[in-house]
């Protein structure tokens, strides 16, 4: 089943293409990371999918509901946690959840039980009766998630959920997101690659309003692993690097002395040929090999490469 589906979804502001022909399918019960640099179109996408912004063209469905003007069923089935959640400071956390529950037409009994559940989930039970005005940034972020969960949403949109948190707050929120996967699809827009690497089942990379790729983190690592070989030698390998640079099936070769030992990075154009031929070339060089590995690139490496190649 598909939780989110977009077909040629576009949003133009005059000549600026904030989002250009987005085609996307997100399955149910996954954490989907929507990754991109600032201004890439992440927030525009979230605004379009939550119905806050009208598309210039294209269409989208979320939780089986067509995204569009005033579709309140869509809002009843989804949750939205903004990057900087705002509350009425004169309310307590519990009051705010009661208010949100009433907006979702929950009965008083449901509101009471569901509030207790989500407060426990976000670990705010003890602060529930305190005024929101006195909450810390992390507590506000957690209450922002709690209010988005009160209606048991089928799809939860989170806009930069950890962008303004300290490492401890970030860790807590990411652990919470992992727990949410059991009951909902989480669409998380972020520019923090390590967050995606840690919690997302699949990832979409967007830049300049265009979706560049959609895949799982593991598949991306496998796909982009082809090019990165690392070799550590005892002796200076400058001559060997020059030899490698002249080989047609290698993209580039470089030596790094930052660890005190010569570390040679090689990116291959033909992976299978490189795997067969490189050991032979090392042997012929007469250098003493200390380490040789086909390195899995970090998501940051992949992201940079995808964005660079557009």
């Amino acid at each position: 089943m598909t939780a989110i589906s977009a077909r040629n979804l576009s949003k133009y502001y005059g000549p600026i293409k904030a989002l250009d022909k987005l085609n996307l399918e997100v399955p149910e019960n996954v954490v989907f990371g929507f990754l991109g640099p600032n201004g890439a179109g992440k927030t525009t996408t979230v605004k379009l999918l939550t119905g806050f912004t009208h598309p210039t063209s294209g269409e989208a469905w979320v939780a089986g509901e067509k995204v569009g003007d005033g579709n309140l069923n869509l809002k009843a089935k989804t949750g939205f946690a903004p990057d900087v959640p705002a509350f009425y400071d004169w309310m307590s956390g519990q009051d705010f959840l009661k208010y949100i529950g009433e907006l979702h037409h929950l009965s008083p009994t449901e509101i009471k039980s569901r509030s207790a559940e989500v407060l426990e989930l976000v670990e705010l039970e003890k602060a529930a009766k305190r005024r929101v005005g006195g909450y810390s940034r992390g507590m506000r972020q957690r209450l922002g998630i709690a209010q988005a969960l009160i209606n048991r949403p089928k799809v939860l949109f989170m806009d930069e959920p950890t962008s303004a948190l300290d490492p401890i707050g970030r860790k807590e929120i990411l652990e919470l997101i992992l727990r949410l996967r059991q009951n909902a699809t989480v669409f998380m827009s972020t520019h923090i690659l390590s967050d995606v690497e840690r919690v997302c089942d699949s990832v979409g990379i967007v830049d300049k309003g265009r979706l560049l790729t959609v895949s799982t983190v593991a598949a991306l690592q496998k796909q982009y692993a082809r090019s990165v070989f690392e070799m550590e030698f005892t002796e200076n390998a400058a001559g060997f690097v020059e030899t490698l640079k002249k080989i047609g099936w290698l993209a580039d070769a470089a030596m790094d002395m930052s660890n005190g030992k010569p570390l040679v990075h090689v990116r291959a154009l033909e992976i299978e040929r490189a795997r067969k031929e490189l050991p032979r070339l090392i042997s012929e060089s007469g250098l003493t090999l200390e380490r040789y590995e086909l390195r899995l690139p970090s998501l940051e490496d992949i992201f940079m490469e995808i964005v660079k190649n557009g």
Binding site: T50, F52, G70, L72, N73, K75, A76, T78, G79, F80, P82, V84, P85, A86, F87, Y88, I100, L103, H104, H105, G144, Q147, A148
Partner: peptide, 13 residues
């Protein structure tokens, strides 16, 4: 403040 965004993300007109 952003409270409008949270309220209007709920099923209210």
């Amino acid at each position: 403040s952003g409270t409008a965004v949270i309220t209007l993300s709920k099923p209210v007109s």
